[in-house]
Simulated scan of single mutants.
Amino acid sequence: MATTASNPSLRLSSRTSHFVLPKQWASMRKAEALERETGKRVIHFEKGDFQGDEFRPAPHIMEACAKAVADGHVRYVPGPGLPELRDAIAEEATKRGRPTVREEVLVTMGAKHALTQSLLTMVDQGDEVIFPNPGYPPDEFWITYAGGSVVYAPLVEPDFHFDLDSLESLITPKTKMLIINSPQRPNGQTVGQLEEIAAICTEHNVMVLTDEIFSHMVYSGAEHKTIAAVEGMADRSILVDTFSKTYIMTGFRIGWCVANKDLITTMDIFQQNSVTNVPAFVQLAALAAITGPQDHVIEITKKLEGKRDRTVAALNKMPGVECPTPDGSFYVFPDIRGTGMTAQQFADYMIENYQVGVVAGSAFGDRGEGHIRLTYACPDDVLDEGLDRIRKGLENL
């Protein structure tokens, strides 16, 4: 049983002994505190969100949400999601090469809750889950909460691919699941070798949790593919995605997952006994997003590709920095080892001296050391100013 230092009489569950605030948000907390306490203007490259008026949901999405509220869609609805939205998501998954029906779809409170439910439904005490290093910290959080063990699979630079021999060597009789995400967080690279990874998982009876929140935010020259579409993987995978990134709906908190219908039924029970359901008016906004015109998605992706190229070019001109060009997402993950600083030293130096927030790559695992994560989904003038502050900071080292 755990207690707290400030209140030793508060007897917490031992399952909370690993509880810490999200590691990837530490820079954001520091930046916001600096802004609040000093009044100084901070450039927020550390936030994994869109900034500025150019990044807003398409008008028809906003109109659908407002109309749904006005029409009284403010009551409970079926736990797994509105049938028409589940059908539309099933069609989306089918287009990716994984034939899907409504009963294999669960509408969730964002992709994060889909990941949480997947892990708490699947992972048992003593199970091992193979986790990419660098990877997405909340997954580690819930694996540990469920009593599982995190086994780190080192990703190989510069494109952060899985080493297949190393991956297979990590599998033991206790291995329950492998987590992949593509395009990857935090580096934006797509995951290749999906057929080979699928073959390994099939041979060893390992489930795959595939996090695809940037599925539509992939740039020219790259292609998003899902391991769920590989032969034999439909029932051996949980595909997680969200409306947050594709449709700029981060604050709506709506995502989805696709899996074997028996697993979806079990996860629906979890959902109905936790959050009950995603609000109906949010689901109707999502329905308008996924079934309506997609030209806004294409336009935003093209805009982000330009910002990516602008960011990569600027970073590669800075002393001590090497920045590969990511396949997708709205992140870059430059190598800053040439500066002589650790990732955390770099992040602290920039926020304290130049008021520009970035995330230390070490927040995503020890293979992220020597890198920073920077979000470029912001207005061009803000992007340029922030990059200029970083340049000045490096020149003044």
Rank of each mutant, 00 (worst) to 15 (best):
N7A: 14
P8R: 11
R11G: 01
S17I: 02
F19N: 11
M28I: 12
R29L: 14
A31Y: 13
L34W: 02
H44W: 11
G48E: 14
Q51D: 05
G52F: 07
E63I: 07
A66C: 11
A68Q: 00
A68H: 03
A68Y: 03
V69Y: 10
V69S: 05
R75T: 07
G79T: 15
A88T: 06
E91G: 12
V101D: 15
R102S: 12
E104R: 13
L106P: 00
V107H: 06
A114D: 10
Q117N: 10
P134V: 03
Y136L: 15
D139S: 11
T144N: 01
A146M: 03
G147S: 05
G148D: 02
Y152L: 14
D159E: 14
P173C: 12
I180G: 12
L194T: 09
I197E: 07
T202C: 02
D211V: 12
E212D: 15
Y219T: 10
K225E: 13
A229C: 07
V230G: 07
M233E: 09
R236V: 05
M249K: 08
C257F: 09
D262C: 00
T266H: 14
D268G: 08
Q272R: 09
A280R: 03
L284W: 06
L287Q: 12
A289H: 01
Q294D: 08
E299P: 00
I300D: 00
T301A: 15
R308W: 11
G320R: 09
E322A: 06
T325C: 12
G328Q: 02
F333K: 13
P334W: 09
D335R: 09
G338V: 13
T342G: 14
A347R: 11
E352V: 08
G361N: 06
R367M: 12
H371D: 04
T375I: 06
D388S: 13
